[in-house]
Design a protein around this nucleic acid. Structure first.
Lengths: 350, 350
DNA sequence: ATTAGCACTCAACCCTTTCGAGTGCCAACA
DNA sequence: TGTTGGCACTCGAAAGGGTTGAGTGCTAAT
């Protein structure tokens, strides 16, 4: 069921035109805009065929054709050619991302912001998946009686901390001992190999009374687990309102409603990432179109993600959500460029 | 130019009805819904007068009346009666805010979330203004050569940290000395009294080579200043789309566009707070209506803020942004309750 | 000061008409 | 067999026109 050459061109032209004009495209206007050397009637036949195959559809009987999800899919998979950014576009992105930033989190935020600005769409980033990063330091600072700060330094230069409750009468010195022995025994271990048991055995030979010890260890453990938690950063939601695709209040509300549930979006991105990783087919970017996205209200959107890297074992995602009627080529090339720059900058931090 | 009694009642009724129905209210329907003991013609006269005075206006010649900004102002200033929350409402809020949370930031976020849920509007919180809080601890942790973590513990239990660059060859011991003497000399000082000079003099008598010292001190200083920076947290923007007041795409876009510029909103809130503080008239809450709000796109909104407290010297704001056609009484009482609960919980943390 | 009555206004709604881009299909053609 | 011109048909969008009804201001009487 391969499409013949002209049909491919027709589908490509339909997507291009529809993206550009937001009007269903008809056989006649196709002829006008493109140099097909055939008549409109011929195209009509081709279009009827494309419709039969499910690549395009008509909003109503007497309107032009519009690409279906499958049509877009075919387009991004084999028809579009990724274009390259102009010098100016590159510079613009570059100047926004680089800059003297000392924390990875901020850098990633910058990149996300830049991505949203550059594409005009919603952009997002997932915090790095730290479960494969390893512990470099663990300190517990006494803040006041009953309260301490657990500070974790992880590979890839990430620092996390958490305020925890501790027994009131524990001394500074005891705390040093505990954190010292946790640190000594767990340094170099990936986070996902650290369990409550590992923490407990790590601190076994400090001579602290067990009940005291237990609570501290438990809190240290939760601090470690918390560091491992994913978070998501979303930006530019309001930009979606500018696109006619969401000019119906209802659609816009559904969309923004879903996006506002950042936990849900994060879960979805994560799931997709896991799926892609485990299935082995790891492209440089990943596209979900329309109904392929298992999130309510995103039926008219496409969701494009890429993976950034921090060191060898740690990675996260950045992504863009826009109307599925988008200029995929531009968006992908921009995202790719942002990703590359981000990777470069992240490398500098380590 | 005091309004006579009946005119007050008329204005009040108009606001109430308009808030409830979102339809311009006419003399006849006023009579039906309220127990005025006069005829519609009389009300028409009153309404004409209220319009002349600028409290109400007509969308078009032959429609009913709608409160003007000034009308709402009069309403909130002297007509409305704040109602009390039902047990159930109270419980709902209470259960959402309390809970075992160890960090103030998280608590405030919870409160903001609750506020948005309870009102159905956009809610926001400003981070505590820490300039009046004082330094309790300052530690500098070496992370790796050239990189350190400055950890500040402030009064009111707030902890801030920042990764900074330091000279490569500085030793652990030297660092201890530096942070030790900064801490010793600055502990107890309010943040806003700490300047680069104070920091430098604080560490004067460590025997570290000056160039090294200078950079570390500078970084410590920036870390302190950064802790002092305000940030804002906004939630529930998408909820505004549910209100007919923003059913025009244009208005909705302007509104969400402005709200997405969180720096701008933060600046505005801060400015208002300063103004209120300096002018001395410190109410338990503060209302800005429609055009009174100096932010683009919020012409149809009202902006209500209150102040929460962390300890004696530190405070911040929580607030609600909703359509100006809102049930002020309910919103205010809810916000007030959230504020009180938040204050209670914050107290528990210290 | 209040009221009944009346003429007037104007957005909202509904109905109809017109318009035109686009379609499917067919018969003719290379 | 693929391509083409021609033609009848479809149907949403836009434009026009009439009706409705809630609401108003004004006036004269109470």
């Amino acid at each position: 069921m391969e499409l013949d050459d002209r049909k491919k061109r027709v589908l490509q032209a339909i997507v291009d035109d529809y993206v550009a004009t937001n009007e269903p495209v008809g056989s006649k206007s196709l002829i006008e805009r493109h140099d097909f050397r055939v008549s409109s009637a011929t195209l009509r036949n081709d279009m009827a065929e494309l419709e039969r195959l499910g690549f395009i559809e008509k909003p109503h009987t007497s309107a032009g054709r519009v690409p279906s999800d499958r049509g877009y899919r075919e387009y991004v998979d084999s028809l579009m050619k990724i274009d390259t950014l102009t010098e100016k576009e590159q510079e613009e992105i570059e100047s926004n991302i680089s800059g003297s930033v000392d924390e990875a989190a901020e850098l990633i935020k910058n990149a996300t912001h830049t991505l949203s600005e550059a594409t005009g769409f919603v952009s997002l980033s997932m915090s790095p998946r730290l479960r494969k990063s390893f512990l470099k330091q663990l300190k517990i600072l006494m803040i006041e009686p009953g309260k301490a700060l657990v500070v974790l330094v992880l590979s890839a230069g990430v620092v996390k901390d958490k305020i925890v409750r501790i027994p009131n009468f524990i001394t500074d010195e005891q705390m040093m001992k505990i954190s010292g022995s946790i640190e000594k025994n767990l340094t170099g271990k990936p986070l996902d190999e650290i369990t409550l048991v590992t923490v407990e055995t790590a601190a076994r030979d400090t001579e602290i009374p067990v009940p005291l010890l237990k609570q501290v260890l438990y809190e240290a453990y939760t601090a470690i687990k918390q560091a491992d938690q994913l978070s998501i950063y979303l930006e530019g939601e309001h930009k979606m309102l500018a696109y006619p695709d969401f000019s119906s209040l209802g659609r816009a509300r559904d969309l923004l409603g879903t996006l506002s549930d950042s936990g849900m979006v994060a879960g979805y991105v994560n799931e997709m990432e896991n799926l892609a990783t485990s299935s082995g087919k790891k492209d440089s970017y990943m596209i979900r179109i329309g109904q392929e996205i298992a999130l309510e209200g995103l039926d008219d959107c496409s969701f494009i993600t890429a993976t950034y890297n921090m060191g060898d074992t740690v990675s996260g995602n950045i992504g863009v959500i826009g109307p599925k009627r988008m200029d995929y080529s531009r968006v992908i090339s921009k995202m790719d460029f942002v990703k590359r720059k981000l990777n470069e900058e992240l490398k500098k931090l380590t």
